[in-house]
Design a protein around this nucleic acid. Sequence first.
DNA 1: CTATTGGTGGACAATTTGCCCAATCGCTAA
DNA 2: TTAGCGATTGGGCAAATTGTCCACCAATAG
Lengths: 155, 155
Amino acid sequence: MTIDQLDVRLVTLLTEEPRIGVLECSRRLNVARGTVQARLDRLAARGVIVGHGPQIDPAALGYDVTAFVTLQIRQVSGHVPVADRLALVPEVLEVHTITGGGDMLCRVVARSNADLQRVIDLIVDVEGVVRTSSVIALDTPVPYRTLPLVAAART
Amino acid sequence: MTIDQLDVRLVTLLTEEPRIGVLECSRRLNVARGTVQARLDRLAARGVIVGHGPQIDPAALGYDVTAFVTLQIRQVSGHVPVADRLALVPEVLEVHTITGGGDMLCRVVARSNADLQRVIDLIVDVEGVVRTSSVIALDTPVPYRTLPLVAAART
DNA sequence: CTATTGGTGGACAATTTGCCCAATCGCTAA
DNA sequence: TTAGCGATTGGGCAAATTGTCCACCAATAG
């Protein structure tokens, strides 16, 4: 919750050059190594930093097409079993339940427009899904980022 | 493009335990250290792994509300200047141009529903934005993930 | 005033890294 | 078949980094 200037600089530094270690961070930020370690532990403990895993680019794997699919689901069945089934489809990257009667929004990728049809068919086949509506992402002028948010959240 | 079993195991391992180093990876996967280094370099060179930066949870920073905002923009102005302005708003996490007449889709976060109104007002004020339509994400049964996709992409 | 918290600077052994090398393996082309 | 060629292996080396201590200082809260 309470993020200060040093935290912001630390996260920014690590985002821009993830390969550097704790010691190098402390040198760049002109603080003691123990401070950097303590800050990182604190940010991880608070849940601000959820992980350091490798970030994968689906496009580099051949999944050039990104689409957002809105699902209308049968209300009686509930959304949990639907989400569980959707999770089984690798091309479904994330699923949200959204405002409105039993609707869900999911982000999917596919190898081509034709392949997108296959993926959507998989989704439609999920028990409880009544109807889908898709929009294709043509371009991504602002890729996912959180750095500006972190900077804005500083105390 | 060509991802084999070892790549998948490597990415999976690093995703689950990002703190471990190259040497530890080689031990877990029963391969030589040089192999792991070579694979990581290759994946990075191909653009499959785009980074290792810290992943930030907006909710831990107090931004509990996530929403997807569809924008209708004035077609004459083009979407580039609009995207540039949107990029100046920290709460806008990503922006896509989508199919349909001059539309854009962006993911935004806010501290509360009331705060979301403020963010949306910021977006509406952007030159070229004609109208907006928002859906709020109530829950995220499947958080963003790429591991299943990586596994599916293996040769 | 005093206990607590966060930062500093230093120390230490153990581990890991970056980089080199020669040998081997599987596969492809001649 | 044979000659390459890329990938992998196993090893070795110095240098850097890590994890983990410690004592000390400054600001803050009670």
